[in-house]
Design a protein around this nucleic acid. Structure first.
Length: 323
DNA sequence: AAGTGAGACAACCGCATGTGT
DNA sequence: GACACATGCGGTTGTCTCACT
C-alpha cells in the first residue's frame, strides 16, 4: 500500500540547519522532550521533515556529544567493536556514549577503513582480526550488518555472530590489554577528552552552544554524558527534566549508569519494555549512561570467561538461547 | 595568489523494526 | 493476526574546508 512519506515533500526544507532552526528545535524539545518527532515540524513551525529533526537532535544538538578528535582508545574500541558487531553503528556507538553513530560511521569510513587497509598491506599485524573484517570480511565494512541481516533472519545472524564470538572476544581482549595495562579505561577513554576536543567542535556547534547557553548542560541529561564537572547535576530545572523525555536515552541514563555498578545484566533486564531501541542503548551503557558503565561491562565481559556478560549488554536478544 | 584535489562532516534516503489499533 | 504508523538504523551523497601544486 505504500507508506506515505514521513512528511510531505513539498515545502520541506533541506540542507544545512541554521542556528535559528536549531534554536527552534531545541526550544521545542526543551519544552516537550524528545520524541513524537512527527509533531515537531508542525508544532515548531520548522519546515523540516520529522526525520530530519530527529537526526539533527540526535547527531548534533543533543547535549553531551563530543565531536572530532577520536582518541586512540576510542579508535581501537571502534575497530574491534566493528569486527565484533559489524556495521551496527548504533550498537557500537552505545559503547561510546559521547559519540553518535553517524560520527562513528563517518570516522570509520574516512579514517579507520583506510588505516586498517594500510595495516593489512603492511603485513597486517596487530589488528588482524579486525582488519580482516574491515578489509574484506564484511565487504569492506559496507553492507556488513545489513547484508548479514538480509541473508538470514535476525535469529540466524545473531547465531552466526554468536558463533564468532570467541574470535572476536579474543581480538577485543588483545586490543584492550594492549593499551590498558591499567584496567580502568572507563575513566580513561571517552571521558578523557583530549584537550583540544572542545575546540574541535564544529564551528556551527559553537554557535549553537552559544545559542543554547544556559540550557544545554551536558551533565543534565546528556545521558549523563558526564562531561566535566557540570555533570554533577545541579542543573535541575529545565535541562534535567527535558533530558528525560519519555524513555529517551538521556533519561534512563542514570538508571543504567547506577545499575551498571551493581550489574549490567540487572540494568538490561530491568528495562521497561517501553523503550525498545533506546532502551537497548541504555542497557549497553550507551545512549547516555556515560562512558564508565560501558567500559566496565566490557571489562567484566572480557574477564568473565563464562561469557554471558556482553550478551547481556549488547541487544542481541536472549542469550540463554545460545548457551 | 589562484586552481585543483582530497578529506571530513552533515544531512538525506530507503529499508527495517517496533508499537498501537 | 493483520495492518498502519512512527521511529531507528545504515548506506550514500552533497557540501564545505584545507592542503598541495
Amino acid at each position: 500500500m505504500g507508506r506515505p512519506p514521513c512528511c510531505d515533500k513539498v515545502g520541506v526544507k533541506k540542507g544545512p540547519w541554521t542556528p535559528e532552526e536549531d534554536l527552534m528545535l531545541v526550544s521545542y524539545i526543551q519544552e516537550h522532550g524528545a520524541g513524537n518527532w512527527r509533531a515537531v515540524p508542525t508544532n515548531t513551525g520548522l519546515m523540516r521533515c520529522s526525520k530530519s529533526c530527529r537526526l539533527r537532535w540526535t547527531n548534533y544538538l543533543r547535549p553531551g556529544i563530543k565531536r572530532g578528535n577520536f582518541t586512540e582508545q576510542e579508535e581501537k574500541l571502534i575497530v574491534h567493536l566493528q569486527a565484533l558487531l559489524g556495521n551496527r553503528w548504533a550498537a557500537i556507538a552505545s559503547y561510546l556514549p559521547e559519540r553518535t553513530d553517524n560520527d562513528i560511521k563517518n570516522y570509520w569510513n574516512t579514517h579507520l577503513k583506510k588505516k586498517l587497509k594500510k595495516m593489512q598491506a603492511a603485513g597486517g599485524g596487530e589488528d588482524g582480526g579486525a582488519a580482516s573484517e574491515g578489509g574484506g570480511g564484511r565487504g569492506d565494512g559496507d553492507g556488513g550488518g545489513k547484508s548479514v541481516k538480509a541473508a538470514a533472519p535476525k535469529g540466524q545472524w545473531e547465531r552466526r555472530l554468536q558463533t564468532d564470538i570467541h574470535t572476536a572476544r579474543q581480538a577485543l581482549r588483545d586490543a584492550l590489554s594492549l593499551d590498558h595495562p591499567d584496567p580502568s579505561p572507563a575513566t580513561a577513554a571517552p571521558a578523557a577528552t583530549p584537550a583540544g576536543s572542545s575546540a574541535a567542535y564544529a564551528s556551527s556547534a559553537d554557535n549553537i552552544a552559544r545559542l543554547l547557553q544556559g540550557w544545554m548542560r551536558p551533565g543534565g541529561g546528556g545521558g549523563g554524558n558526564g562531561k566535566g564537572p557540570e555533570a554533577s547535576g545541579s542543573t535541575s530545572t529545565t535541562a534535567t527534566t527535558q533530558q528525560q523525555p519519555q524513555c529517551s536515552g538521556e533519561g534512563a541514563a542514570s538508571a543504567s549508569a547506577s545499575a551498571s555498578q551493581s550489574g549490567a545484566a540487572a540494568a538490561a533486564t530491568a528495562q521497561t519494555p517501553e523503550c525498545s531501541t533506546e532502551t537497548s542503548k541504555m542497557a549497553t551503557g550507551g545512549g547516555a549512561g556515560g562512558p564508565a558503565p560501558a567500559f566496565s561491562m566490557l571489562e567484566s565481559w572480557l574477564l568473565d570467561d563464562g561469557g554471558m556478560g556482553l550478551m547481556d549488554v549488547v541487544p542481541l536478544g536472549d542469550p540463554s538461547e545460545f548457551f
